[in-house]
Structures are given as C-alpha cells and as structure tokens.
C-alpha cells in the first residue's frame, strides 16, 4: 500500500514539475531592474580593472587630423 501511495505521489509530482517548470516566468518577474545578475562574477575582474585605471583630470586633448604627423 505504501509503495502504491509513494509511486502515485512521485508520478503526480514529476508531472506537475514537468508542466509548470517549462512555463516561462511572467514579465513581472523577468522585466525588472533589481534582478540578480548571475554573470557579474565573470565581469567582476573587468570592473576591478576599471577601478584601478588612472583618471586624468582636466580638459581632454583634441585629436585633429594633423596629430598623426
């Protein structure tokens, strides 16, 4: 009897998960600004590089066509 009930629960659960899992999340869930950025780990090293970059203050020098010479 136990095995039968276990089996039924398992089959129903798998079926529900299979159906519900494949539905795409709502726009309310996907289109928001405060979503977790799972890729930030990868980009972290990039951010660190930019943090360490030297910032030169003052007016930027204009590049003209003659600057190549």
């Amino acid at each position: 009897m136990n095995t039968l009930i276990f089996g039924l629960i398992i089959i129903i659960s798998l079926f529900i998960f299979l159906k519900l899992g494949k539905i795409k999340a709502s726009k309310k869930q996907l289109n928001r600004d405060n979503r977790i950025k799972w890729r930030r780990n990868q980009n972290q090293s990039l951010n660190e590089d930019t943090d360490n970059s030297k910032i030169v203050e003052g007016k930027p020098a204009q590049i003209s066509d003659q600057s190549d010479e």
């Binding site: 629960i9 529900i16 998960f17 999340a25 405060n34």
Partner: peptide, 23 residues
C-alpha cells in the same frame, strides 16, 4: 515527500508568477 514536492510546486508557481522576486 508530500511536503517537499508541495513546497517545490508552490514556490515554482510563486516564482513564475512573480509573487516572489529574488534580488
């Protein structure tokens, strides 16, 4: 088992519908 899959199904529903929004 019932509770585990009950929690799985209800949280999946809450996530898909946007009731729970992970930040």
């Amino acid at each position: 088992i019932g509770l585990t899959f009950g929690i799985l199904a209800s949280l999946l529903f809450c996530y898909k519908t946007g009731i729970i929004k992970p930040t």
